[in-house]
């Protein structure tokens, strides 16, 4: 009678350890393999954050979002994370998309003023009207991949 109980306890302990190990080491979201929760224009997501940041955070943050917009420029000033800017509201607000360095060659191949589709994880909107030196606000997507 004792033997089956000991075996059961061992099996449960191994299962718990396996679960704990997998939870502790679970991978980051793989954007390429994830379905976009929302698909919208760069101008639409910028306006959503500019109009009501808290509401937009509740809808979009932490989710894989697909955006389409006009490429304003590439920002390669930080080699740890190549970035591009999509026009969000003319020259006043942007969608800033950050890529892993492994995506650099694809970022370099993009042409300014072209329309691009990007998928990435929405992190929120950086900048503030109160911080006058910082200029425009950016809706930020990270771990992006280029769709076209």
């Amino acid at each position: 009678m004792i033997r089956p109980i000991i075996i059961l306890i061992i099996v449960l302990a191994i299962g718990a350890a396996f679960y704990g190990y997998n939870t502790y080491n679970k991978p980051h979201t793989n954007v390429g393999e994830s379905e976009a929760a929302e698909t919208l224009l760069a101008s639409e997501i910028f306006v959503a954050f500019d109009t009501n940041e808290q509401a937009a955070m509740a809808i979009y943050s932490d989710k894989v979002i697909q955006v389409e917009g006009e490429l304003l420029s590439k920002d390669l000033s930080n080699d740890k994370e190549p970035q591009i800017l999509l026009k969000g509201n003319g020259d006043e607000g942007f969608v800033r998309c950050g890529f892993k360095p492994t995506e650099l060659s694809k970022v370099l191949a993009l042409t300014d003023s072209s329309t691009v589709k990007i998928k990435g994880i929405c992190m929120g909107c950086n900048g503030s009207e109160e911080l006058d030196l910082l200029g425009s606000k950016d809706v930020v997507l990270s771990n992006c991949i280029i769709i076209n």
């Binding site: 502790y24 080491n25 992190m123 950086n126 990270s142």
Partner: peptide
């Protein structure tokens, strides 16, 4: 000499997702 920073908290990336 006025200095300003703004940083998104969610955009901090950790080695482990958990």
């Amino acid at each position: 000499g006025k200095l300003q920073f703004s940083v998104l908290i969610k955009d901090f990336e950790f080695p482990k997702a958990l």
